[in-house]
């Protein structure tokens, strides 16, 4: 028998990714225990803005958005945010620091895509838990939490998918810093802070002071939560919704390419740690 020397080819690489996805799902399941703890944390995290807003409405019921819209918004934002949970920075940061990145780079698959598949499997897992939140919310808030229309829901699904990809590519761009600092924590914190502020998780962006709102316009974070939820709620409809989706598409493509480009630069200077 002769040793093998196959050529890379697209279709067969695709098989690898499908196969990889199956294995990633199993790996996500392997961490059930930690998922449950993070779920408990999340409940607390989302409960607090809700409590604050309840107090605000108690003092002044005439805000720009009615209470009947605000609470579904917050809940949906929480669910979407939860589904976006992916440990991209943490995972890649750790692999760089421990030199395990070598293993990944020695596989005949694209690093950005392979890590994305891991993120996707995390996302599906967290998304399923997000659905649990949603049903709990439905029990409390009733039909206020349902989509504005079937059409809005359809557009929401598209927008949600794009939001997920944007989230991943944002993380991927940020994590490039770990190739230089050899740690994922600072990056995680920085991205987290920006995202908390500009994604619309704690309040609809219409409530923001003008300068923050303007800054948010120039950042991709609002497309991760605010855009899909506005479409779901029917705040953005028809042409406006399509325009938002196109913006998402543009951000996604740009961030994907930026990540790819930065990765090439990072690898040029990477000094794989450990003998």
């Amino acid at each position: 028998m002769r040793a093998l020397e196959p050529q890379l080819n697209f279709i067969e690489s695709f098989h690898s990714y499908v196969s990889l996805f199956g294995r990633s799902l199993r790996a996500s399941f392997a961490y059930r225990a930690s998922t449950v703890t993070s779920l408990v944390t999340a409940v607390f995290m989302y409960a607090i803005p809700m409590l604050v807003w309840r107090q605000v409405y108690a003092q002044n019921p005439n805000l720009g958005i009615s209470k009947a819209k605000m609470f579904p918004y917050l809940l949906l934002a929480g669910c979407v945010n939860y589904a976006m949970g992916m440990s991209v920075e943490f995972r890649i940061g750790q692999r760089i620091r421990q030199g395990l990145i070598a293993t990944d780079l020695l596989k005949p698959v694209d690093f950005q895509i392979a890590q994305g598949i891991q993120a996707l499997s995390d996302g599906l897992f967290n998304g399923a838990l997000g659905m649990v939140f949603f049903f709990c919310g439905y029990l409390v808030l009733g039909k206020d939490i349902l989509p504005a229309s079937l059409f809005s829901f359809g557009l929401f699904l598209v927008s949600f998918l794009l939001a997920f990809l944007i989230q991943y590519f944002v993380c991927f761009v940020f994590v490039q810093g770990a190739f230089y600092t050899y740690s994922g924590y600072g990056i995680f914190a920085a991205r987290g802070a920006l995202q908390q502020t500009f994604s619309g998780m704690i309040a609809p962006l219409t409530f923001y002071p003008p300068f923050l709102k303007a800054a948010g316009e120039w950042l991709p974070f609002r497309h991760i939560i605010y855009t899909p939820v506005s479409i779901y709620m029917g705040w953005a409809q028809g042409a406006e919704a399509l325009d938002l989706i196109l913006q998402q598409l543009a951000w996604m493509t740009g961030l994907y390419l930026l990540g790819k480009f930065l990765m090439i630069k990072s690898l040029k200077q990477l000094e794989v740690q450990g003998g």
Binding site: E5, L100, L106
Partner: peptide
Amino acid sequence: RRQLALNIGVVFGQRPQLLWDI
């Protein structure tokens, strides 16, 4: 690198090459 990865086999004794959780 990626094309070559298909044609070579590597063991770095000190680091695990296999997926950790499966």
